[in-house]
Amino acid sequence: QDYKDLIKKVTMYLDNALTKEAERELLREIKSNPNYMELLHKEKSFREFVKSRVQRRTVSPALVQSIKERIKITS
């Protein structure tokens, strides 16, 4: 249960969803325990791994032009 709670807090921390106070408390906990630090590192590195490897695409100028023409947008 402690472990589940910790994962939940680490997840929310990485999602920027903790209050400042909860964040400070978590970071204090993490500093005092190498296992917690390892968990934070693993979670963070997985997020970065996924984000860096997911394919990003750029819209073609033709699509932008087509949208503008259909709406008759003035530049």
């Binding site: 990003r56 695409r57 819209v59 699509l63 932008v64 709406i71 947008i73 003035t74 530049s75």
Partner: peptide, 17 residues
């Protein structure tokens, strides 16, 4: 059109992805 060009169109790559 100003709102469309300045606030909406810059999001097009993120929307497309």
């Amino acid at each position: 059109d100003k709102v469309f060009n300045e606030e909406f169109l810059p999001q097009i790559d993120a929307l497309y992805n």
